[in-house]
Design a protein around this nucleic acid. Structure first.
Lengths: 162, 162
DNA sequence: CCGGGATGGTTTCGATATAAACTATCTCGC
DNA sequence: GCGAGATAGTTTATATCGAAACCATCCCGG
């Protein structure tokens, strides 16, 4: 049907857009695998992310948590509701500011967080960790470089040069 | 509380789990940037993914589309409803099987798909494409290797050797 | 002190997602 | 043919997400 300008037999397999597609598929695969393991603990990915963040730093406000999870405060509101309902998290009154809640893990929440961190780390170690150490370092290096390029792009678009 | 065997001052910055966290943050950043550009076209990421998939291969059934988007058929049901509502997609009766629908883009759907593909490709080219070609090739290589390791891991767990 | 703006949370609406139950249709073996 | 099981879509319930409107409280300048 289409002219298909150049026959382009093997195409440029490392054309950036194709690399992005592979990156996306890998993300889906790894996320799905980790989600499957967390599900055996009765946790979803967002719930685990919240617990794991709180296990590193307790007493966060919901805004703090929203910032660390890269989601809106409205979303955190419901997420925390369900974690409180499940007996994994407590909302404590904040002495300094009556508007905010200090979030704390219950003992059950802490042990679930630790179990989740362990299965996540185990999965990454037995897949990514199987590769030569040099490859892991290369991945890390290029991911950082891409991130820097993405940040530059954002800055060159929003006029926040101060 | 914990013994913390080695003091581990600077830690191993390329420890696989940390690399996975950076990978995740990069994914969020790039996805958010592309989502922002697609939003100016009035498209969400899932809607764009559906249009772009149909632009490569029209006449797919909803199951086909669900498989390509890595989502459930129940999800595609509502997604297609909204795209039909917006006049971007048509459900045509399938002659061979009265249960299934053949999905086709309308002219408006095709031109939106092409516009979306263009903004996505442009973003990737001006971020990832800024890096040395060798880095892009390295990223591609390691992503493929990780994917292969993830697949091996899945197979070593579900008994589908046959 | 007091009033206006900023900030922390909640709620609502709509989109996206899974799982599971359900309907309609197809297919295959007998 | 006919019935059992598979398959295509829909629907429902629940969780997750952003955006926006909203309330309570805080903070700061005058």
């Amino acid at each position: 049907m289409e002219p298909l300008p150049p026959p382009d037999p093997a195409a440029d397999e490392t054309e950036p857009l194709r690399v992005w597609f592979r990156f996306l598929r890998l993300h889906r695969r790894v996320s799905a695998a980790i989600a499957g393991e967390l599900r055996t603990l009765g946790l979803s990915i967002p719930q685990f992310d919240a617990l794991s963040t709180l296990s590193e730093q307790e007493g966060l406000t919901q805004q703090d948590l929203a910032a660390r999870l890269y989601v809106t405060k409205g979303n955190v509101s419901g997420l925390v509701d369900r974690l409180v309902e499940a007996g994994l998290v407590e909302r404590r009154a904040s002495p300094a500011d009556r508007r905010s809640h200090a979030l704390h893990l219950t003992p059950a929440g802490l042990s679930l967080a630790e179990a989740g961190i362990a299965v996540q780390a185990a999965y990454v170690r037995r897949t990514l960790g199987r590769l030569p150490e040099r490859d892991v370092a290369e991945l890390d290096r290029v991911v950082r470089a891409w991130r820097a390029a993405a940040r530059d792009d954002e800055e060159s678009r929003c006029p926040t040069p101060s």
